[in-house]
Design a protein around this nucleic acid. Structure first.
Length: 425
DNA sequence: TCTGGGGTCCTAGGACCC
DNA sequence: TCTGGGGTCCTAGGACCC
C-alpha cells in the first residue's frame, strides 16, 4: 500500500523585521538596541534582540519605555511602511525560487510548501534559504519546518532562539518534538491568545504537550472550533491548509488616532473624509467596490467615559466612487457627532467588498461610466504627481490631525541617494 | 502630557418565520 | 396552571493574528 506523503511546511519569518529594515541603511546600528514605533509614534512594535534584552516590551507605549530607552541609549525609529513593504516584496520574490507553493502570510512571514520538492536533507535546505535571503537582501530570517502550520510555528520559535536560525521536526522522532512541546507555554501557541491561555492555565494545561492530549469533546464544548483545529495540528493533523492564491479582501479599514484631541465637528469630518478618500483609492486599485460603509469616531479608550460612536450605511448600489462615498461619510459624521466630547480617533470601514467585474450589472450602472472615468483620471494624476494632487474640497488639509512621525529615517528606496556606499579594501 | 493600524473568523443572541 | 421549537439570517462584539 502506498503511504500518503507527509507534508513539509516551512515557516520563514524575518527577525525583528522593521528593525532589520532600518539597520540595512544604518550598519552602524548592527549590535545596538533599536526599536521601531507604531503610527503616531505611539507604541513599540519592533525590537532588536538588544532592545528585548534591555527589558523593552512588545506593544508598550513609548512614554512608558522612556526610562529604559534613555538608560540603554536605544535608537528609536518612526515606522516607514513604504520601505518595509518594498523589502518585504524582495524577500518574498527570493523565497518563491525555493518553492512555487507559497503563502504570503504577512509582511514578514511566508509559509512554503516543500512537500513536492526533492530534498535530501531538510535542515540543509532551509539553512540555504536563510543564507540566500541574508546575502541577497540583507534581512536575517528564522525558519521552522514541520508537518503542519502550527508545528512549523513552534519550530520557528525554536529556530529564533538557536544559533543556527533554523529548526525542523520532519526528520526527528516524535519523542524529540514532544520534549520541545513540553517546554512550550500555551500562550506561545499560534491561535492561543491572552484569553484562551488564561482559560487553559486555569484548567491546568500549561504547555503545548499537555494541550495536545486534551479531550476533544471537552474542548469543543468549552471553546471554539478553531482551538480544536489548533490541537489537531499539534498532533500532526493538518487543519489549516496553505492558501496559495490571491483572495480579494473582505474589508478595508482606514483609521488614525489624532496627534491632538479633536472637539469640533468640522475637524472630525475632515479626518473622516480623508480616510474615506484613502480607502476609496485602495479599493479602486484592487478592482473592488463597497456595499456597506461604517464610519466611527471615538474618545480615548484609556480614559473614563470612553465613547465609541458608529454609523453603518448600506449603499443601494455598490460603488468605489470617491465623490459618492465622501458624501455618505460626511453625512454619517453629522448623524453620530456628540457635542462636548474630546475625540481621539476616527475612521471608516468599507465592508462587504466585491470584485467589481463580478458584480452584477444593474440597471443604473451605465450612469456611473463618466464618474468611473473621472476617478481613473484622478488616480492616475495622483500616482504621477504625488498623493493628494487632486482631491475633493472637503479634504482641505489643516494638519489638525496629522500624524506624529518625529523619528523617521526617511529612507526611500526609489531614490538613488539612499543606496548604501560600499568601500572596498 | 503621551497608549497603532489593519485584517480574519467565530459566536451569542435577537429577529423573524413556519 | 401550563407560554413550542427549530431553522435561518443578521449583527455586534470578542478573540486572535501580524
Amino acid at each position: 500500500m502506498q503511504q500518503t506523503k507527509r507534508r513539509v511546511i516551512a515557516l520563514v519569518d524575518c527577525n525583528s523585521f522593521y528593525v532589520s529594515c532600518e539597520r540595512l541603511f544604518r550598519p552602524d546600528l548592527k549590535r545596538a538596541p533599536v526599536v521601531v514605533l507604531s503610527n503616531n509614534d505611539g507604541c513599540i512594535i519592533s525590537r532588536s534582540t538588544e532592545a528585548k534584552q534591555a527589558g523593552i516590551k512588545m506593544g508598550e507605549p513609548l512614554f512608558k519605555a522612556k526610562y529604559l530607552i534613555d538608560k540603554y541609549k536605544v535608537k528609536v525609529f518612526s515606522s516607514n511602511y513604504e520601505l518595509y513593504g518594498d523589502l518585504s516584496r524582495r524577500v518574498m520574490k527570493v523565497l518563491k525560487n525555493f518553492s512555487p507553493d507559497i503563502e504570503f502570510y504577512s509582511i514578514d512571514e511566508a509559509f512554503l510548501d516543500l512537500t513536492n520538492i526533492q530534498i535530501d536533507n531538510i535542515e540543509a535546505y532551509i539553512k540555504n534559504i536563510r543564507e540566500v535571503i541574508l546575502r541577497w537582501i540583507g534581512i536575517p530570517v528564522s525558519i521552522g519546518a514541520a508537518s503542519t502550520k502550527t508545528l512549523a510555528k513552534v519550530a520557528n520559535h525554536v529556530a529564533k532562539k538557536s544559533q543556527k536560525g533554523v529548526e525542523e521536526f520532519i526528520s526527528k522522532d516524535q519523542s524529540y518534538v514532544d520534549e520541545v512541546l513540553k517546554t512550550f507555554p500555551v500562550r506561545e501557541i499560534w491561535g492561543i491568545g491572552k484569553q484562551l491561555s488564561k482559560f487553559f492555565i486555569n484548567n491546568n494545561f500549561h504547555n503545548a504537550f499537555q494541550l495536545k492530549s486534551v479531550d476533544n469533546s471537552w474542548v469543543r464544548k468549552n471553546s471554539s472550533v478553531v482551538v480544536l483545529k489548533t490541537i489537531h495540528e499539534l498532533n500532526n493533523i493538518c487543519c489549516f491548509p496553505l492558501n496559495f492564491s490571491y483572495t480579494a479582501r473582505k474589508n478595508c479599514i482606514v483609521s488614525r488616532s489624532f496627534g491632538e484631541k479633536i472637539i469640533e465637528i468640522n475637524d472630525l469630518k475632515e479626518a473622516v473624509v480623508n480616510h474615506c478618500i484613502t480607502a476609496a483609492e485602495r479599493i479602486r486599485s484592487e478592482g473592488l467596490i463597497v456595499k456597506s460603509v461604517y464610519v466611527f469616531i471615538k474618545t480615548n479608550k484609556f480614559k473614563d467615559g470612553y465613547t465609541s460612536l458608529v454609523k453603518k450605511i448600506d449603499l443601494p448600489i455598490a460603488t468605489n466612487n470617491t465623490l459618492e462615498l465622501v458624501n455618505v461619510c460626511s453625512k454619517a459624521v453629522d448623524s453620530i457627532y456628540v457635542k462636548g466630547l474630546s475625540y481621539s480617533k476616527a475612521g471608516v470601514l468599507f465592508g462587504e467588498l466585491e470584485v467589481k467585474d463580478n458584480y452584477e450589472k444593474n440597471l443604473f450602472s451605465h450612469l456611473n461610466q463618466n464618474l468611473d472615468y473621472l476617478m481613473k483620471v484622478i488616480d492616475d494624476t495622483n500616482v504621477k504627481f504625488g498623493r493628494g494632487t487632486v482631491s475633493v474640497a472637503a479634504a482641505r488639509i489643516n494638519n489638525n490631525y496629522k500624524m506624529k512621525r518625529s523619528h523617521s529615517s526617511k529612507i526611500d528606496t526609489s531614490f538613488l541617494k539612499f543606496v548604501p556606499i560600499v568601500k572596498t579594501g
